[in-house]
Amino acid sequence: MIEVKAMMVGVVIRVDAGPGTEVAEDQPIVTLESMKMELPVPAPRPGRVREIRVQVGDVVQEGDVVALLEDEAG
């Protein structure tokens, strides 16, 4: 299981890949607004989204887990 973490502080503006979605490496899982940009939190490796830990409107801090990803190893 891979913990997908926010790389910086920001507000969740979109969930791009909900639970069950197969994602490729670098595919956005959720999108934050930060530094006047829409910053995706991309999948660090290919896998299937197990759980989304945030909701639209949430403020996340750097290092907060936003999603859990099952990689090939499970």
């Binding site: 790389m7 910086m8 670098d26 930060s34 530094m35 940009m37 910053l39 995706p40 991309p42």
Partner: peptide, 8 residues
């Protein structure tokens, strides 16, 4: 790389 941290 804008995809990560906006490229900062």
């Amino acid at each position: 790389q804008p995809l990560y941290l906006g490229g900062v």
